[in-house]
Simulated scan of single mutants.
Amino acid sequence: MSSPQHSGVPRWVFVPAAAGALFIVLPLVALASRVEWSQFWSLITSESSRAALLLSLRTSATATLLCIVLGVPMALVLARTSFRGQSLLRSLVLLPLVLPPVVGGIALLYTFGRQGLLGHTIEVLGLQIAFSTTAVVIAQTFVSLPFLVVSLEGSLRTAGDRYEIVAATLGARPTTVLRRVTLPLVLPGLAAGAVLSFARALGEFGATITFAGSLEGVTRTLPLEIYLQRESDPDAAVALSLVLVVVAVLVIGLVRGTRSDAP
């Protein structure tokens, strides 16, 4: 049996590396070992589970579209322009990555809630956002948007702007350059960011339950359903948790695929 190629890496490094891998893998193995496989399909297809899964898929897809609509311009501004306060703006954009989700939920509640900064005005117009499906989408977008911005900004900086300069020199308008040159060039990065945003939205819990609550069929997404089933039906909670693990593995595979296709 040939030894692994390590390119000068000290042999002792493999010991903590293996320990770290076990630290990640063992809990997943333990989770899979607790699944009641004979009842797995019935557990994940119960009425409440199906409602939560479908709601999660629908809201996560909507949140991903919002991330693309808002995140692509943000990444372009951060990667292709220079202005005073740009570093501060980038820090604020990345804030949801390190902010506890429940804090983000409270911030959204005091922005769009009935007594919030914008909520009172919105309610006068006959709209109520907090504790609705719209609130779920907003919460998911809030926590997912940085993933798309970071991924796309990195792709834009790596690709450089030489092709865009050439296109502009040949007389192409800025919008044409963006549509025909810039976006096709960074499409793998955009796809990877969109997939990551979808995965983050699908697994969102803290901001959602704080801002949207847990109403079955309205705001109770799959992570909330797992949390509630943990006490009343542990077998269902384990089965649904495994579903999210499988989705996460598929997402990682998609991201790696889009990265490997990058020029």
Rank of each mutant, 00 (worst) to 15 (best):
S2E: 04
H6A: 15
R11F: 00
R11Y: 00
G20T: 08
A21K: 02
A21S: 00
L22M: 11
P27E: 07
L28F: 08
A32M: 09
S33W: 06
S33M: 02
R34T: 11
S38A: 14
F40P: 04
S46C: 00
S46H: 10
E47A: 14
E47D: 10
S49L: 00
A63H: 14
T64G: 14
L65R: 08
L70Q: 02
V72W: 03
P73N: 06
L78F: 05
R80H: 05
S82I: 02
F83M: 04
G85F: 09
L89W: 09
S91Y: 14
S91H: 07
V93S: 03
L95R: 02
P100W: 05
G104R: 05
I106E: 11
F112I: 08
H120W: 08
G126Q: 00
Q128D: 00
S132R: 05
S132W: 05
T141L: 15
L145Q: 07
P146R: 08
V149P: 00
S151M: 14
L152S: 03
R157Y: 09
G160D: 07
D161W: 08
R162S: 14
E164I: 13
A167I: 10
T169A: 15
L170Y: 13
G171H: 10
T175Q: 00
T176F: 01
V177P: 04
R180S: 11
T182K: 12
T182I: 07
P184W: 07
L185F: 01
L187D: 03
V195K: 02
F198W: 15
R200L: 10
F205W: 03
T210W: 07
G213E: 12
E216P: 15
G217Y: 07
V218N: 01
T221G: 03
L222H: 02
R230E: 12
E231C: 08
D235V: 06
A236F: 01
A236W: 09
A236M: 15
A237G: 03
V238E: 10
V238T: 15
A239S: 13
A239R: 05
L240F: 02
V245A: 09
V246L: 14
A248V: 08
V255D: 11
T258F: 14
R259H: 11
R259Q: 13
D261H: 02
A262S: 15
